[in-house]
């Protein structure tokens, strides 16, 4: 019973934090876009415009709800639901902190540590594409359909390369559980130093999976009006936009836990604090890393223009996947060498 209660509280906290961060990511996106373009950005709602996400949310809820008469009603509603559900589900396996020891019992700050952790993330992400596909198809609109088709082919292509990058990582760490991967990067032994190519591949694929610029072809305004969510309005549109930001938050969390040590930080052992304090500091640092990557996502968005579709496919299939295979081979040699099974 106590176990369930703790897990329930953790789920609620993670859910609220994901939603809160996603909401403020919209604000941060507008602010960063403005700053990078020498503007000020939203500053009218509250001090520094901090209430802007609230205003946006209220606006989204107040908007008229339109379901096209020729749309497939059920699937039209199902689309944003799947999108939102899958993006919220991924946070389950991410270790947010080492854990707290209270009265002799150890409580890890993670909802669940399943032994297929990273595969779970891949599974959920691969389901996420249905949200876009179903929504785009059910809208009964050519632009939406084009967006949906682009989204699905893009996500499948880049999922492969992402998988390749992660396979190399699994080879060095020898585990699928994200928590164990993070524990292995204790101190400053971050995976990015052993897997630099894998990291670059992973982050590029993460951009593509989140449909962020330069890979935002599914909602490419210049060609497709609004892409897969052209026909959506009100909070259903809000769900699509919001899910994108949750996805961004989750992928930032996964990147920082897979390659940047998660809640580990350099000189963790030299500080001499009690484990509980170290754990709290670690969680804060983990969030710092996440915020940096969210910023990086936005920074890239306001720097690089969008790919052309054939360039996107070319990059995915002819560059990323061969590089991924190369990385796997290189990692194999590295692992053998490290285990002393290879002599030069």
């Amino acid at each position: 019973m106590e176990f369930l209660l703790i897990k329930f509280v953790l789920v609620v906290i993670v859910f609220v934090i994901s939603l809160g961060i996603a909401a403020y990511s919209t604000y941060a996106e507008r602010k960063i876009a403005a700053f990078l373009q020498d503007r000020v950005g939203p500053d009218r709602a509250g001090p520094f415009g901090l209430l802007q996400p609230v205003a946006d949310g209220v606006k989204m809820f107040m908007k008229e709800e339109i379901i096209p008469s020729n749309a497939d009603r059920l699937l039209f509603i199902l689309g944003p639901c799947i999108m939102m559900m899958t993006s919220c589900m991924t946070g389950v396996v991410i270790p947010w902190g080492h854990g707290l020891e209270i009265n002799g019992t150890f409580y890890p700050v993670q909802i669940t540590d399943i032994n297929i952790g990273i595969l779970y993330v891949f599974g959920v992400v691969s389901i996420g594409v249905y949200g876009i596909m179903i929504g785009g198809w059910a809208s009964n609109n050519k632009y939406s359909l084009m967006g949906a088709i682009r989204a699905s082919s893009q996500m499948i292509s880049y999922e492969l390369a992402m998988g390749m990058a992660v396979i190399a990582l699994i080879m060095t760490t020898g585990t699928l559980s994200i928590r164990e991967m993070v524990e292995q990067q204790h101190g400053f032994h971050w995976n990015v130093f052993t897997q630099p190519l894998g990291f670059v591949l992973f982050i590029i694929c993460a951009f593509a999976e989140c449909n962020r610029t330069p890979f935002d072809l599914p909602e490419c305004e210049t060609e497709l009006v609004g892409g897969y969510h052209t026909e959506y309005s009100s909070m259903k549109l809000g769900f699509y936009l919001f899910a994108e930001y949750i996805n961004m938050f989750i992928s930032a969390a996964i990147i920082s836990s897979l390659y940047f040590g998660g809640y580990n930080f350099p000189f963790i052992d030299q500080l001499g604090f009690s484990p509980n304090i170290l754990s709290i500091v670690g969680t804060l640092i983990f969030f710092g890393k996440i915020f940096f990557f969210i910023f990086f996502f936005m920074w890239i968005r306001w720097t690089i223009p969008r790919f052309r579709y054939d360039q996107l496919m070319h990059l995915g299939w002819r560059t990323m996947i061969p590089l991924g295979i190369l990385n796997i081979l290189g990692t194999g040699v590295y692992v053998l060498y490290k285990n002393g099974q290879l002599h030069f």
């Binding site: 403005a34 990078l36 503007r39 000020v40 500053d43 920074w299 890239i300 720097t303 690089i304």
Partner: peptide
């Protein structure tokens, strides 16, 4: 891409041109 990122990050700290 890196040089592009450098250009944009420089703008982050520039004086804003907006007149409120």
């Amino acid at each position: 891409i890196l040089s592009g990122l450098l250009i944009t990050i420089k703008h982050l700290f520039r004086k804003k041109v907006t007149i409120k």
